[in-house]
Design a protein around this nucleic acid. Sequence first.
DNA 1: TCAATGGTTTGGCGGCGGCCGAACCATTGG
DNA 2: CCAATGGTTCGGCCGCCGCCAAACCATTGA
Lengths: 241, 241
Amino acid sequence: MVAAANMVEVAALVGDTARATMLATLMGGQALTASELASRARITRSTASGHLGKLVGARLLSVTQKRRNRYYRIASPLVARMLESIKAVAAIEVPQRHQPRSIDDGRLRFARTCYDHLAGYLGVAIADALVANGYVVLTDDGGEVTASGMRFLSAFGVVLAPNSGSRRIFCRPCLDWSERRFHVAGHVGAEIHRCCLDRGWLRRDREGRIVRITPAGQIGLRKTFGIDLGDGSRCGANALW
Amino acid sequence: MVAAANMVEVAALVGDTARATMLATLMGGQALTASELASRARITRSTASGHLGKLVGARLLSVTQKRRNRYYRIASPLVARMLESIKAVAAIEVPQRHQPRSIDDGRLRFARTCYDHLAGYLGVAIADALVANGYVVLTDDGGEVTASGMRFLSAFGVVLAPNSGSRRIFCRPCLDWSERRFHVAGHVGAEIHRCCLDRGWLRRDREGRIVRITPAGQIGLRKTFGIDLGDGSRCGANALW
DNA sequence: TCAATGGTTTGGCGGCGGCCGAACCATTGG
DNA sequence: CCAATGGTTCGGCCGCCGCCAAACCATTGA
């Protein structure tokens, strides 16, 4: 009762299967309706309504009404980062233990969105390529874009430092729960994701976090980053499940 | 059931008042015995034992036996960062709502440890000073030590880049829950904390996260960082509670 | 105006899990 | 050897909270 006050509330909110499923789904970055979230969590709409009410009340989610529907989304990057970090811890805990591994799980491990940036095998591959070429430097505690990285990213279409002119740091490592290695988050991560979508390299699955790579994307990713995704043997996540 | 698996477990573990209190206490960075943690959480030893067993089982805590006692500590920096991020989210949620504000709460807001670095009014003040002097740059997504910052920190006694030679990024912003602004975490944050202790500028309260500033610290902090803590009016946190 | 759809509220059921006390085990010190 | 201390295990109690169905409200479209 001394220091931890409402921190308990927040964690307890996430510590329920139905609510966590909704939150994880919304980590795709898009807004979904209450009914959609209910079906994802496999609960009735009434139950979902209660959960969503709590999540909004605690400011973990925000709502926008549009015509008949209420669209829920992650309330802020801060919440997204909290969920990332919980997931990162959860992925260590007891390596082997009833891994579900559905069909979607394989796709999820291969390429997904993580709120506003790319994750999974693809996300890590891009990060690796950027590091290997000396465009960015990543460690446990932070990330940095090098001078040559600035040129490279600008050429790619990334809009650098949109808000504050002098601040040059916007590249953050994010521990990928499926690959157990870093991918690029922060402003740079979000921009790379955006550029890939703009170029038609990636396409989102209808709802959820899964991302598909288009034929143009196969070529573009190889030419730009030197990532060869066509070869199934290289992407263990895809081949295994 | 699709994406969120054991993430639920981890969050649920934190989402209990007794366990969260223990975790928050251990965020002081030191190891404590089961009995000590039980009394902090105001529960019996038997209850605490059950909780601690779960936390260790989930790898949130680790134990070391020393003579008669079992010492528990936060298992990894990853766990510490998770707790930080949960706390950061919790501090936003519903600004006004039964704030406890005990006597200790005031000291906690003034100066405390956050796993391995300094937080509270003091932590933010140090971060502000470093930024104002152009020694470090902090944004939402990352931090960087400038060239002049390297010289300054080295002179102060900070050991830079202890492990990997070429990696230069080890400075991370951490959102202070009490001040709602950034303080310095990561390797640099931990080193600054260490140096302050080594110089006798700070002294820890017996157990818990509270840090006291010694007379030498008052002087040193003013001379080195230009932080004037003697003036009560400047440190709202201290004066108020 | 009426039917259909999206969402919330209410009431009641059921189970998980936290809590304690008491007994038990292990280590230490006399 | 025994007493004291730190910690765990066990059994039982209690309450919180998640779940659903059904009723209700609101918006939209015909």
